[in-house]
């Protein structure tokens, strides 16, 4: 079980994580963050395999992935 944490205020909504997630679980939220971008988010965290492809491609170092369930 992995927890993907998005530093939402730094996300620029570029969508690269959305594209490269092999599980297709990342989406851009409907709302905007303080910078005016639709931040990336995950609804069903249980499908995450912790592969970190999303973090590898994120140009803004928004994503951290830790092992262990959501609190």
């Amino acid at each position: 079980m992995f927890q993907v944490n998005f530093l939402e205020q730094y996300c620029k909504g570029c969508g690269l994580c959305v594209h490269f997630c092999p599980k297709n679980i990342i989406v851009l939220a409907q709302y905007t963050n303080d910078q005016g971008y639709n931040p990336a988010t995950i609804n069903d965290m249980t499908k995450c395999t912790g592969c970190a492809l999303c973090a590898r491609m994120c140009p803004h170092v928004v994503i951290e992935i830790v092992e262990g369930g959501a609190a």
């Binding site: 530093l7 620029k12 909504g13 969508g15 590898r56 140009p59 170092v61 994503i63 951290e64």
Partner: peptide, 21 residues
Amino acid sequence: KKGYMRPPTLLQKPWHFCPGC
């Protein structure tokens, strides 16, 4: 290797780079 943590050598602050740069 699974999971990912920000490298401590990168300061955590907003960047001026354009989306996807």
